[in-house]
Design a protein around this nucleic acid. Structure first.
Length: 805
DNA sequence: AAATCCCGCCAAACT
DNA sequence: AGTTTGGCGGGATTT
């Protein structure tokens, strides 16, 4: 495995050379598990890309290389879930203990039960396929194994976290992050998320808004932040300290506190300001001021200890080192550093090499002098704000001379919404732009579907829906509203011109999405072709992975559904297919080209006639897809849901067939093709009950997301009632490549789905597992709520351990 | 044996 | 008083 990781990394990493005497160890050094990362290479910011469009586009096209820009992960990626998984979830919900237990198993080898397809493992290449196998591919195996420690590593977790959001989110639409939700979706305890977020915050990749709330900035501000840190580091004389440390001076190094830093901190510093966050910044500073850009763990620990004034006892040192590992894992996931070993007299010392940018425009190496002011450059993209934020952060630590004010302020913000819980859809799920998040108090923001316009493709869906969405919702509206954003389909919809559309039904208690389908085509084609390409580079794979996959998946998956009326529908399909499909064209184009066409395709052209589907598949959120509620026309079922055979992992989703008539009452909010939709369904009355028995089909979605999902009832008859505010996404659209298939894709954004793949994963089976953390995962679904609250300790209690006391 | 670092107890900070 | 954060370090895993 490792090897793989390394390899991947290497590929990924922009720079490889190691200056000093480090030996990279080639692959070896990296032993770490975490490392896999890579997903994003550091790119110096490109403003352009940063925009939404690119993102979207990329996703779709997802060609590997293309822009790595934002590798968003939204898609549906693979989720390995099997039908049974759902059951397990339910069960688990019932009892935590069980849940945990089950989860673990499930996560890792989800498939086991069904193993419908045991796809061959090897396929690393194709990530997609594996979807079924969750386990790590790498290894092969074993599915069952328990999650090894590695699987639970902070680095991996961090990758998952990062995968949830775009590197360069659209500047104007901030992505709101609920720690709670993230923790839930990733299946880990909150504590772990704090570790990640703290270091991300230290780099301005995220910003704290309030309690439990963070805003995702991605890498937009990163460069500026780094530059800033570099300056500070110089000012503080870190480079000197490093030297000392390296020399072996131990304990006493002279600290030079430059005044500022020193321990000054003590005074005002709270514990909070004290550690991980600050430590992370300092650690980064060390790299930035280092000539070799390589910092040994030992040296870093020493430097940090001094600062902290604690005199370090050995234990302090140990503790520091532990923290540094935590930080290093996160930085590694960001591709900012990589592990290496420095040889020394006595052997090799663990060290990390900086992979990120070192030279910033303004700052010359000149050294310290300048202050922040310089920052400007990269930032262009961002508004001023950024800087302020950065400063404020820095301020937190006494060491940083900057004004302290901000800190306090920031923190205060917390007051705002306390745990938002699910309300916002914000979730990680969909990285893309979707709407904005709520304001502090929870005010809702609406999503903007519209934004998509820019992006070309996305347009297809109409915004209108959005607005409406909120309103319709009943009481809980607020939440629901929020949710909406997630929906945002921009991407989702974007690409495909396919005939089908998705509609969002606000009125349902649970927001649901309905896909309207015209004529189902056949899903036959698989997007494989393109995918093959993927093989080659892992990296590429990762990024593109999803998009395509997703789409493809959606498209492909054929199989499984129950189609009832297929016949009827079927007739038409072909034609539709023609229409639809055509637009799709090869994936390659994804980015631009499609957009125009596509959009239109749906609406205008494609429209040809909207045939109405006789039945829809209704997929309740509860099912575990996270956000998904959707109705799919049965006829298509196959098509629609079909995931690409290989590619997608299957998600098992319970669904219900609903006669179209049933939907009549519900107003459709959005539709890709509005017209069509409207025509067809303008009113749907949805009587779920009517539904047929639920069946499962696999969609590539993720399982767990649901954190919140309160309701667990899915299977039987999903009642529309449950409100789940959050997420739903549906996407329709053919996969880019898939030529023919109009199949709509449904992309569900579950967090998982989103995942970008890390290279490894990709290769590996990881896909499934990816998001979930080993332990938790399983829980995915259910776990969410419950889990969150109890502390670990408590948890134990539950389990039955007598509390120690 | 050393390097890593997961886990989660427990207390500070906030509500 | 209840939560949210997050320091900290025991001890399990990996290397």
């Amino acid at each position: 495995m490792e090897a793989e990781c390394l390899a991947l990394k290497d590929l990924t990493s922009p720079r490889k050379s190691f200056p000093v005497g480090l030996d990279e160890d080639g692959g070896q050094c990296d032993q770490k598990e975490n490392i896999c990362t890579e997903r994003r290479r550091t790119t110096p910011l490109k403003c352009a890309e940063s925009n939404v469009l690119p993102l979207l586009i990329n996703r779709k096209s997802s060609t590997p290389d293309l822009a790595h820009v934002t590798p968003i992960k939204y898609t549906v990626l693979a989720e390995p879930l099997t039908p049974t998984a759902n059951l397990k979830m339910l069960i688990s919900a019932a009892s935590p203990d069980i849940r945990d237990r089950e989860m673990k198993k499930v996560l890792f080898r989800p498939i086991e039960n069904e193993k419908d397809n045991p796809a061959s493992p090897d396929t690393l290449v194709e990530e997609v396929e594996d979807s079924y196998q969750l386990e790590a591919v790498d290894e092969e195996d074993d599915t069952e194994k328990k999650p090894s420690r590695k699987q639970k590593s902070l680095g991996l977790l961090c990758q998952k976290f990062l995968a949830l959001y775009p590197d360069y989110p659209p500047p104007h639409s901030p992505i709101w992050i609920s720690l709670d939700e993230v923790a839930t979706s990733l299946g880990v305890e909150r504590r772990r998320i704090y570790d990640i977020v703290n270091v991300l915050e230290s780099l301005t990749i995220v910003g704290r808004i309030a309690k439990n709330s963070y805003t995702w900035y991605g890498r937009q501000k990163l460069e500026a932040t780094l530059e800033d840190l570099q300056q500070k580091g110089r000012q503080q004389g870190y480079h000197l300290q490093m030297e000392l440390a390296n020399e072996g001076k131990e304990g006493g190094l002279g600290r030079e506190d430059d005044g500022v830093e020193g321990d000054a901190s003590n005074a005002g510093v709270n514990r909070k300001d004290k550690s991980l966050r600050i430590m992370s910044q300092k650690f980064v500073m060390l790299f930035l001021v280092s000539k070799t850009q390589t910092v040994t763990l030992d040296a870093a620990a020493k430097v940090l200890i001094e600062e902290s004034q604690d005199s370090s006892s050995h234990s302090k040192y140990k503790t520091k080192v532990r923290r540094l590992y935590d930080i290093a894992n996160v930085l590694t996931s960001l591709d900012l550093i990589k592990k290496v070993h420095v040889r020394e007299e006595r052997g090799r010392k663990p060290a990390f090499k900086w992979l990120g940018p070192v030279e910033f425009k303004n700052s010359g190496n000149a050294g310290n002098t300048v202050n922040v002011a310089a920052v400007a450059p990269s930032e262009a993209t961002h508004p001023v704000v950024v800087q302020d934020l950065r400063k404020s952060k820095m301020a937190r630590h006494a060491s940083f001379s900057i004004t302290p004010t901000s800190v306090a302020v920031q923190r205060q913000a917390n007051s705002a919404p306390s745990t938002p819980r699910r309300q916002l859809a914000v979730l990680p799920n969909q990285p893309v732009d979707y709407s904005r998040r709520t304001t502090s108090n929870g005010a809702v923001c609406r999503l903007q579907f519209g934004s998509s316009t820019d992006n070309c493709a996305s347009t297809s869906l109409q915004t209108p829906a959005c607005n409406s969405t909120s309103s319709p919702l009943s009481p809980s509206s607020t939440q629901s509203t929020l949710l909406a954003p997630p929906l945002l389909p921009e991407h989702i919809f974007t690409p495909s011109p396919s005939p089908h559309c998705l509609a969002y039904l606000p009125s349902l208690s649970q927001p649901s999405v309905v896909m309207l389908y015209r004529a189902p085509d056949k899903p036959e084609q698989t997007p494989e072709g393109p995918r093959s390409a993927m093989l080659e580079s892992e990296e590429g794979r990762k990024r593109r992975r999803d998009e395509k996959d997703e789409e493809e998946t959606a498209v492909k998956k054929k199989g499984t559904f129950v189609v009832k009326e297929s016949d009827k529908t079927r007739a038409e399909p072909q034609r539709e297919a023609g229409d639809c499909s055509q637009p799709t064209r090869s994936s390659s184009n994804p980015p631009a080209g499609p957009s125009t066409t596509v959009n239109r395709g749906l609406g205008a052209n494609s429209s040809s006639e909207p045939t109405q589907p006789s039945h829809y598949l209704y997929v309740p959120n509860s099912a575990g897809l996270n956000s998904l509620n959707l109705l799919l026309p049965t006829g298509q079922a196959q098509a629609g849901l079909a995931l690409p055979a290989g590619s997608v992992p299957a998600l098992a989703v319970p669904y219900v067939l609903v006669p179209s008539a049933a939907l009549s009452h519900y107003p459709l909010v959005a539709s890709g093709l509005q017209q069509q939709v409207s025509d067809a369904h303008a009113k749907l009355s949805f009587s779920l009950p009517a539904v047929m028995s639920p069946a499962h089909f696999a969609v590539g979605a993720t399982p767990y997301s649901l954190a919140a999902a309160p309701e667990i009832n899915w299977p039987p008859v999903p009642s529309p009632a449950t409100p789940e505010p959050n997420r739903l996404y549906a996407s329709a659209g053919g996969a880019p490549h898939s030529p023919s298939g109009p199949r709509q894709t449904v992309s569900i954004n579950t967090p998982e789905a989103l995942t970008p793949h890390t290279p490894k994963e990709t290769t590996a089976s990881a896909s499934k597992a990816f998001f979930q953390t080993p332990g938790t995962l399983g829980s995915v679904v259910c776990a969410a709520p419950a889990a969150r609250k109890r502390g670990s300790a408590q948890r134990r209690l539950d389990v039955g351990h007598p509390p120690a006391s």
